[in-house]
Design a protein around this nucleic acid. Structure first.
Length: 549
RNA sequence: GGUCCCGUAGCUCAGUUGGAUAGAGCAACAGCCUUCUAAGCUGUGGGUCGCGCGUUCGAAUCGCGCCGGGAUCACCA
């Protein structure tokens, strides 16, 4: 506009004229309120459809080694079972791994298991004292649930002790520090660090139970990892880095021997990196594991899928590494996701207001089964196939429900209103896929799937056909944006839009009954293409596409 | 209190590198199955985009100030 020095209407009109003359794909244009709207010839859309509908790698980019990414997610504590918050973490992490791979980033999926520390010792202590040698086998409980039970038991008994001490006149703080149970838990931690055989034995046994339980949950959720780190093996890392920092003068050692980093000039506080007794804190370890990952993989990016409650921690981590002149400081990215809240507020393990991961998946399965049978869609299936279908639908609903929301935002989950299966949901998209699949199978049976001749360019497209092709064309863009923004919701919202638009087409335009072979072929191509893009999109979200439902 | 994030329809969410009349789903109401799967499609109603000021030809989008909600500020992880 500045170039033409004319008003928007006039400029647009002149531009439109010129483009109409120069480009054959531009069939006409309109100027509305100063906006130039170009109408592309139907031939353009038909050509695009014909040359891409059967390309399996449509929208995907080849991997390039210089874009390697280390992606950490899940990172559970071994003292309690996984809950809905972990589900969000795992689904985000796993979906991102697929999105990044599809966008050309080689991805290493890593999990850093917090298998040591005072919280495990609490479970160990409660178990040793009150467990009566119970095992997952003897109790019939999943291993992680069993551990969680003793963690809760510890907290309960501990609270009772504190209450008693307060009644004896101690302050809350003192009571919490002096309760015999916590002192004993600390003693167990000390013994563990001293490699006491009995303590380490119990620790190994109980962690083993936790892993068995986690693996079951991971498997059902459909997530996995390329490498698992254990904090028991990494918690001593980072001390060298801190010492090095002291020697270089970027960190300060106080008189009591503790080491600190001063970030006050950057608007943050001073942060402890080594205790006065020389032991590590959480930050120390994260400094060390960052170095470890960098040395092992030389990634271009190190992504941490961790809740937004640790924003400050990662801020400090990045700045600390930058201050220590580590080349990978700038490659660290904290994918900070919001909390999953219940109607009554944040989930709290101690108050028993957590939504258990296994229970939730089971409920989703049951709801899917109920709904499918109610609709009579499972008739003719073997029990095994029916169960697989219920699982696909139930988990599809759950995964889509979580992934369609922008990761950085808090989200609400109301257990009383079970997750929907209609409208903007996973099953809606799965259903669209299944219906296309059924349509194509029928076409195959009728011998209509041999696309011998290319579709001629002079076919006049109907509105919903054109809209669907437009959306198909946008798939690569949606994928790229999801990868750039590390946001699976872009893919989720895209595929919903695609399914919705295709459904409109499906509802109003006949395919198999179309007499004109060229039109029929075009609509079948459109269906093949849509099915393929839906399946790929769902796969990027970790959701399976059922052949029928 | 310091720092950071969020506030869009009754509810759950899109839309935010500034652009056209702010969109979906759920819930409510009204239609569409002798025609490819009705977990679908079509339509109706529903909005001071938290409030105010500013920047701009133009603001849900950018800036400042309020209000409301959340997170975080441990020799915890």
């Amino acid at each position: 506009m500045k170039l033409s020095r004319k008003n928007p209407e006039q400029t647009a009109a002149e531009l439109g004229e010129a483009l109409l003359k120069e480009l054959t794909v531009v069939s006409s244009f309109k100027v509305i309120k100063g906006f130039l709207n170009l109408i592309l010839a139907d031939e353009y859309w038909v050509d695009f459809l014909g040359s891409n509908f059967s390309q399996d790698d449509f929208g995907f980019s080849p991997e390039s080694a210089d874009k390697k990414v280390v992606l950490e997610y899940s990172s559970p504590n071994t003292n309690k079972p996984l809950h809905l918050g972990h589900i969000r973490n795992n689904l985000l992490g796993f979906s991102l791994s697929r999105i990044l791979k599809a966008a050309g980033y080689p991805v290493v999926k890593v999990n850093l298991v917090n298998d040591r520390g005072i919280h495990i010792c609490k479970s160990m202590l409660a178990y040793a004292r009150w467990g009566e040698c119970e095992t997952p086998e003897s109790s019939g409980m999943k291993g992680d649930k069993l551990i969680g039970k003793y963690y809760v038991l510890f907290e309960k008994k501990y609270k009772e002790e504190i209450k008693g001490l307060i009644e004896e006149g101690l302050t809350g703080d003192d009571a919490a520090k002096q309760a015999p149970l916590i002192l004993e838990a600390r003693e167990i931690l000390r013994k563990w660090e001293a490699n006491d055989p009995e303590t380490v034995g119990l620790w190994k046994k109980m962690n083993g139970w936790a892993y068995e339980g986690f693996n079951e949950t991971y498997k059902r959720l459909g997530v996995d990892f390329d490498h698992i780190y254990y904090e028991s093996q990494t918690y001593l890392l980072g001390k060298d880095l801190v010492i090095e920092g002291v020697d270089n003068g970027v960190l300060t050692r106080r008189d009591d021997g503790s080491v600190w980093i001063d970030l006050t000039s950057e608007g943050l506080d001073e942060k402890l990196l080594l205790r006065s007794d020389g032991t590590s804190v959480y930050m120390t370890q994260d400094l060390g594991t960052a170095q470890l990952r960098y040395d092992e993989y030389h990634p271009s990016q190190m992504i941490y899928v961790v809740g937004n409650e640790q924003n400050y921690h990662f801020d400090v981590l990045k700045r600390a590494l930058a201050k220590m002149n580590k080349p990978y400081a700038a490659r660290i990215f904290h994918l900070s996701y919001g909390m999953v809240e219940l109607p009554e507020g944040k989930m709290k393990s101690r108050e028993g207001t957590v939504v258990d991961a296994d229970d939730l998946m089971e409920e989703m399965h049951a709801t899917a089964a109920e709904m499918t049978m109610e609709l009579g869609k499972s008739s003719g299936l073997t029990d095994n196939n029916a169960n697989n279908l219920f699982e696909m639908i139930g988990l599809g609903a759950l995964k889509y429900f979580i992934l369609k929301v922008d990761p950085k935002k808090n989200m609400l989950f109301d257990p009383k209103e079970s997750i929907d299966f209609n409208g903007n949901t996973g099953p809606f998209i799965q259903y669209t896929y299944a219906r296309i699949n059924s349509l194509l199978a029928k076409a195959e049976g009728l011998g209509m799937m041999a696309f011998s001749t290319p579709v001629p360019g002079d076919i006049a497209l109907l509105a919903s056909e054109k809209e669907t092709i437009k959306l198909l064309m946008m798939f690569p863009q949606a994928l790229m944006q999801a990868a750039d923004e590390l946001n699976p919701a872009n893919v989720a919202n895209y595929v919903y839009e695609l399914a919705k638009t295709y459904n409109q087409f499906y509802q109003e335009i006949p395919v198999l009954k179309e007499e004109n072979a060229e039109l029929r072929q075009l609509r079948l191509m459109l269906s093949v293409f849509t099915a393929s893009v839906i399946r790929k999109s769902l796969k990027l979200l970790g959701i399976d596409s059922p052949e029928r439902m």
